[in-house]
Computed example of a mutant assay.
Amino acid sequence: MKKNQLGQSNLHVSEIGFGTMSIGTDQEMGISLIHEAIDNGVNFIDTADLYEFGLNEEIVGKALQDRRDSVILSSKGGNHWENGKEGWFWDPSKKHIKDACKQSLKRLKTDYLDLYQLHGGTIEDPIDETIQAFEELKQEGLIREYGISSIRPNVIREYVQRSSIASVMMQYSILDRRPEEEMLDLLHKHNISVIARGPLAKGMLTDRFEDKVKDQGFLTHSKDEVLEMARKLSDIQGNDRNMTQTALRYTLAHPAVATAIPGASKSEQLLSNLTAQNSPELTQNEINDIQSISKAITYDKHR
Rank of each mutant, 00 (worst) to 15 (best):
residue 83 N to L: 08
residue 83 N to E: 11
residue 83 N to G: 12
residue 83 N to H: 02
residue 83 N to M: 13
residue 84 G to K: 06
residue 84 G to H: 06
residue 84 G to S: 01
residue 84 G to C: 00
residue 85 K to N: 07
residue 85 K to V: 15
residue 85 K to W: 05
residue 85 K to A: 07
residue 85 K to L: 08
residue 86 E to V: 15
residue 86 E to R: 08
residue 86 E to G: 00
residue 86 E to M: 13
residue 87 G to K: 09
residue 87 G to E: 10
residue 87 G to A: 02
residue 87 G to S: 01
residue 87 G to H: 11
residue 88 W to V: 14
residue 88 W to R: 15
residue 88 W to T: 15
residue 88 W to Q: 13
residue 89 F to K: 02
residue 89 F to Q: 13
residue 89 F to M: 11
residue 89 F to V: 14
residue 89 F to R: 12
residue 89 F to L: 01
residue 89 F to P: 08
residue 89 F to G: 00
residue 89 F to Y: 15
residue 90 W to F: 10
residue 91 D to F: 01
residue 91 D to N: 13
residue 92 P to I: 03
residue 92 P to C: 04
residue 92 P to H: 03
residue 92 P to T: 02
residue 93 S to N: 06
residue 93 S to L: 02
residue 94 K to A: 03
residue 94 K to G: 08
residue 94 K to M: 05
residue 94 K to E: 05
residue 95 K to M: 07
residue 95 K to Y: 12
residue 95 K to T: 14
residue 95 K to G: 12
residue 96 H to D: 05
residue 96 H to E: 03
residue 96 H to I: 07
residue 96 H to L: 00
residue 97 I to Q: 03
residue 97 I to K: 07
residue 98 K to P: 02
residue 98 K to Q: 15
residue 98 K to G: 03
residue 98 K to S: 07
residue 100 A to G: 14
residue 100 A to L: 05
residue 100 A to I: 11
residue 100 A to V: 10
residue 100 A to S: 15
residue 100 A to D: 08
residue 100 A to K: 09
residue 101 C to H: 07
residue 101 C to I: 04
residue 101 C to E: 07
residue 101 C to W: 07
residue 101 C to T: 08
residue 101 C to M: 08
residue 101 C to D: 05
residue 102 K to Y: 05
residue 102 K to M: 07
residue 102 K to N: 12
residue 102 K to W: 03
residue 102 K to S: 10
residue 103 Q to P: 05
residue 103 Q to N: 14
residue 103 Q to I: 02
residue 103 Q to A: 15
residue 103 Q to M: 14
residue 103 Q to W: 03
residue 104 S to Q: 04
residue 104 S to C: 15
residue 104 S to M: 09
residue 104 S to T: 08
residue 104 S to A: 14
residue 105 L to Q: 00
residue 105 L to T: 01
residue 106 K to Y: 12
residue 106 K to L: 14
residue 106 K to D: 09
residue 107 R to Q: 02
residue 107 R to P: 04
residue 107 R to N: 12
residue 107 R to W: 09
residue 107 R to V: 10
residue 108 L to F: 12
residue 108 L to N: 13
residue 108 L to E: 11
residue 109 K to H: 11
residue 109 K to F: 07
residue 109 K to G: 06
residue 110 T to F: 03
residue 111 D to G: 08
residue 111 D to N: 12
residue 111 D to V: 09
residue 111 D to R: 00
residue 112 Y to P: 13
residue 112 Y to N: 11
residue 112 Y to C: 04
residue 112 Y to I: 06
residue 112 Y to G: 10
residue 113 L to H: 02
residue 113 L to A: 05
residue 113 L to D: 00
residue 113 L to R: 00
residue 114 D to K: 01
residue 114 D to S: 00
residue 114 D to M: 00
residue 114 D to C: 00
residue 115 L to Y: 00
residue 115 L to D: 05
residue 115 L to P: 05
residue 115 L to N: 06
residue 115 L to A: 01
residue 116 Y to L: 08
residue 116 Y to I: 05
residue 116 Y to R: 08
residue 117 Q to F: 08
residue 117 Q to E: 03
residue 117 Q to R: 11
residue 118 L to T: 13
residue 118 L to Q: 14
residue 118 L to W: 06
residue 118 L to V: 09
residue 119 H to I: 06
residue 119 H to C: 06
residue 119 H to K: 04
residue 119 H to V: 14
residue 120 G to F: 05
residue 120 G to E: 13
